[in-house]
Structure formats: C-alpha cells, structure tokens
Amino acid sequence: MLRRALFAGTAAAVATAAHAQEGFPARPVTMTVAFPPGGQADVVGRPVAAALERIWRVAVPIVNRPGAAGEIGNAAVARAAPDGYTLLMALSSMTLLPEAARVNGRQPAYTPEMLAPIALFSADPTVLVVPTASPVRTIEDFIADAKARPGQVSYSSAGNYSALHVPMAQLSQAAGLDMLHVPFQGGGPALTALLGGQVQCLASGPGPIAPHVRSGALRPLATWGRTRLAGFEDVPTLIEKGFPDCEFYIWVGLFAPAGTPAPVIARIRESSRLVAAEAEFQRAMAASGNTLDFRDGDAFATFYAEDAARLVRVVRALGKIE
C-alpha cells in the first residue's frame, strides 16, 4: 500500500508538472525591458517577443520601464509573481547594479538571485563610436585628444554603472583619461544624444549603432572584445592596442522571477530554442546588427556566473560615484 501511495503521489506530481508546461501560456506574457526603446535590450527583445507570439499564439507585449540604469525595471520583475507571465529581457548590467548599490552605501533594490536565467540571445563587446564629422579617426587620435582636453571630451551612457558607462570607465582608468560622463535613462536616449551632437562619443552594443555606421553617420574606433567583432572586422580591439583590462560584453538574456515553477521555466526555455532556430528571427537579428549567440541551461548559467563575478570586480574597482 505504501508503494502504491508513493507511486500515486509521484504520478500526480508528474501529471501536474506536465499540465503546467502544456497549459503555459494561457494569457499574454509581458516582457519587461528596463530601458527606453532603441537600446540593446529593446533591439533584441522585440524580435524575441514577436517570435514568441508566433510560437505561443498569445500576445507578448514589450513594457519599457526605464530608470536608475535599469535597476527599476529589473527590480519590478524580480519582485513580480513567479508564474512565468512577467519576464525580463536583461542586459549584463543586471548583475552589477546590486553591487554598485552596496558600493554607494545603498540597499540593493534586488539581487541577481531573485531572477532565474532562461536563455542568452546575444553577447557582443561594446563598440566605441564617434560622429563621422569628428576629426578623430583612430583610437590613438581619440586618446590623444582626450588627454589634451581633460574634462572636455564627453560621452553618454544609460546611467551610472550601466553597460554603456562601465566600459568607458574602464578605458578612462586604463588610459589615464579624464572624460565627462553624461548619463541618460537608456541606450536609446544616449545614442540620440550622440547623433544630436550633445556628446562626442559613446560605447554601445553593436545592434543600435550598426545602422548609423552603415549610413555613414558614425565611425567605430575600437571594441572591448578579446577578438575582432563580426561585421566590424576592420575595427581593432582595445586589447590589441595595449589595454588588456578593457574587456566588456553587453549581453542580452531572458530571465523570470526566481521561484517560477520548473515546468514553466522549461516551457519558456524550449520556446526560446525554437525562437533562436527560426529563420525569421535570425533575419531580424542580422538586420539589426546583432550576432545571435544562443545559450541556455548549464551553458547560459555558467556564462552568467562567470561574467557576473568579473563585473562585480569591475564595480569594486570603480568604487563610489558621487
């Protein structure tokens, strides 16, 4: 009788899990982007959401919740009901913002452990760009100009400790530069500021800047990768130029609130694999200038943990920002 009871209990649990996976989603699933439209997370998130809509046949609206370099939107999802109906398309800065809060004497609005990694869609190094009207044509020109005009060369970002700020802070430290940081609420406004002549340079993921490089509006000078970036093969890395510590990747990944049932996570992960394999999605990623780098399961978890540990070290080295 005991064996029968145990078998019945196990069978019931398996049936419940299977039902949860098969029944999800039964209504629209919100995908939060913690930045305004036009930034890297938004540029990747929109084709992912469109593909999920085709797979699930339910609406997957994008909700942009900018503020505090992404902390507000990240925290909103971290504290949302763990049912799979609120997802986060996050940037790499998600892992460093809680440490930045601690460095500045604040209680973090969330911790990375409050968010469960599901799938990585892209992981590209940031790219340093200037307007083509700028007399600066190479990274050597850029460094010489910034050294000659301390405090006058300005760059925009998505906020303090954001994925657009940290790489520029790395370069400033490595090259001994004093530059003017002008933070905005997201990568979209930061790019608009550069295109509008409000600032003189920007470190961005390749997706948002690629159309402007192709159109001739922006000139890439260097990247923060270990190797040269696909599509930017003529652009040197900062490591090549003698700055071994200037390595930064702006990755975009899908997360759910921690505690979301395992069958629901499995369903979203399975659907994410289908998204990555879909020809229409691949075309959309290529058109937006993003390199598809899909990882899930242990592969994403390992990448995520290693990158998070490195970014925490970077934040501690940057220290408190007044």
Rank of each mutant, 00 (worst) to 15 (best):
P135Y: 08
V136E: 15
E140F: 03
E140S: 08
E140Y: 02
D141H: 11
D141K: 04
D141N: 08
I143C: 00
I143E: 05
D145S: 10
D145Q: 12
A146E: 02
K147V: 01
K147E: 13
K147T: 09
A148I: 09
A148Q: 06
R149M: 11
P150G: 13
G151R: 02
G151T: 14
Q152F: 09
V153C: 04
V153P: 02
S154V: 06
S154C: 05
Y155L: 06
Y155P: 03
Y155A: 10
S156I: 05
S157T: 07
A158P: 11
A158H: 08
A163D: 02
L164G: 15
P167F: 11
M168N: 13
Q170K: 13
Q170M: 14
L171P: 03
S172I: 03
Q173L: 11
A174G: 14
A175R: 08
G176M: 12
G176P: 13
G176Q: 15
G176N: 13
D178W: 13
M179P: 07
M179S: 10
L180D: 03
L180A: 13
L180M: 08
H181I: 04
H181S: 15
V182F: 10
G187S: 06
G187I: 05
P189M: 14
A190Q: 05
A190G: 12
A190T: 08
L191I: 09
T192S: 14
L194P: 03
L194W: 10
G197D: 08
Q198S: 10
V199P: 09
A203E: 01
S204H: 07
S204K: 02
P206E: 15
G207R: 01
V213Y: 09
R214N: 03
R214M: 10
S215M: 08
S215V: 11
G216K: 01
A217S: 14
A217P: 07
L221W: 11
G225D: 05
G225P: 01
R226G: 11
A230N: 01
A230T: 07
A230S: 06
G231K: 05
G231D: 03
E233W: 04
L238H: 02
L238D: 03
E240N: 02
K241F: 02
P244Q: 03
C246I: 01
E247Y: 04
Y249M: 08
I250P: 01
I250F: 01
W251R: 00
W251I: 06
W251G: 04
F255N: 09
F255A: 03
